[in-house]
């Protein structure tokens, strides 16, 4: 009974310290996010380009009074400091502003597109990381073999090739010549599609294009770590004990080798979002990345600031999840 109580107490303390750790990390992230927002707000507003001009267009027919009216409607007639204060106050109230280009609240516009981008980024990260780890493990286990050479080629190719060009090559091969996959876009019931298989077909090429860099990085780092780990004494001990080779590699070696890989995947997440901007443009996916590109062009400040908040929070959350995964994988890591 005493042993059971000790276990229960340990579990309780672990959970408490985990929640405290998470809460502390969130509190630490808030000033960082605010700083990112302030810096980007200032940069956006100071950069050349008047959004009022782009909003009006109109072939030169607008009057100066109308321009002033639009400037007031967009809130751009106020001093920069006042605009910043209004913006930050609204953010803490959950109001990300209103886009006069889309003529809708920013939070609605972003909420509409988040699932599309997350689907692409998360799927490509998971598949690329999984494939990279498997390739890296076999390459590390069999150095200088055919598998290892394939691993090297994949790594160099994946890292060197521009992803927008790779995406277009995939479209050429699979959509135009082989005619087995669509050129892009998302399916919809209104267009006569929208089934699960239809979604799979539309996802294949963009996921591969977006994941190729992640695959290259993961494969390379996993191979390097596996080579190092498999040369350690405890691996020899495990083999000497008569454990099966798969158990030695996947249970004992990989668990240690994968820790740096988790860090790389997390750090690369921000780059995946940048890559998503390019892939969404090539494959006509209506995600956050493409919206960011178009909003920069249009100087749609509210949407841009809203996107920056979402991406900043996203990076913080991913880093937090990475730390939690670390603690799960490595029992030596404790929450403090």
């Amino acid at each position: 009974m005493l042993w059971g109580v000790d276990v229960w107490r340990h579990a309780r303390d672990t959970v408490r310290s985990m929640y405290a750790y998470i809460a502390r990390r969130i509190l630490e992230a808030i000033p960082l996010i605010v700083l990112v927002l302030v810096m980007n707000f200032v940069i956006l507003h100071v950069a050349p380009g008047d959004p009022v001009f782009l909003f009006i267009q109109g072939g030169g027919g607008a009057t100066e009074e109308y321009v002033a009216q639009v400037r007031e409607m967009l809130g751009l007639d106020r001093p920069l400091g006042e605009q910043l204060l209004i913006f930050i106050t609204n953010v803490f109230r959950g109001n990300l502003g209103f886009s006069h280009f889309y003529q809708r609240p920013v939070i609605d516009i972003i909420a509409e597109r988040i699932p599309i981008t997350l689907l692409l980024v998360v799927l490509s990260t998971i598949l690329a990381a999984t494939a990279g780890i498997i390739l890296g493990v076999f390459a590390g286990k069999n150095p200088y073999s055919l598998v290892d050479r394939v691993n090297t080629v994949v790594a160099v190719f994946g890292y060197a090739i521009p992803i927008f060009w790779f995406g277009q090559l995939l479209i050429l091969a699979f959509s135009i010549y082989l005619n087995i996959l669509p050129t892009g876009g998302i399916p919809s019931r209104a267009m006569g599609g929208g089934s699960f298989l239809d979604w799979v077909r539309h996802l294949v090429l963009p996921v591969i294009s977006l994941g190729v860099i992640q695959l290259a990085l993961t494969a390379r780092i996993t191979r390097a770590n596996m080579l190092e780990i498999l040369g350690m004494d405890y691996i020899d001990s495990a083999r000497a004990k008569g454990l099966k080779e798969n158990t030695v590699v996947f249970r004992h070696a990989l668990r240690n080798a994968v820790l740096p890989v988790v860090t790389v995947i997390s750090v690369n997440f921000a780059f995946q979002l940048t890559g998503a901007m390019i892939i969404e443009t090539v494959f006509s996916w209506p995600g956050l990345g493409r919206m960011m590109f178009e909003s920069v062009f249009r100087r749609d400040y509210p949407v841009l600031m809203g996107l920056l908040i979402v991406m900043s929070v996203g990076v913080v959350v991913v880093n937090l999840i990475t730390d939690l995964i670390y603690a799960y994988l490595d029992p030596r890591v404790v929450y403090e």
Partner: peptide, 20 residues
């Protein structure tokens, strides 16, 4: 009528070539 929004000019040309 379906309007497909395809920003990239090459992707647009390929969608047309394929018949999409």
């Amino acid at each position: 009528i379906v309007f497909r929004i395809i920003g990239d000019p090459i992707a647009r040309a390929m969608a047309y070539e394929k018949g999409e």
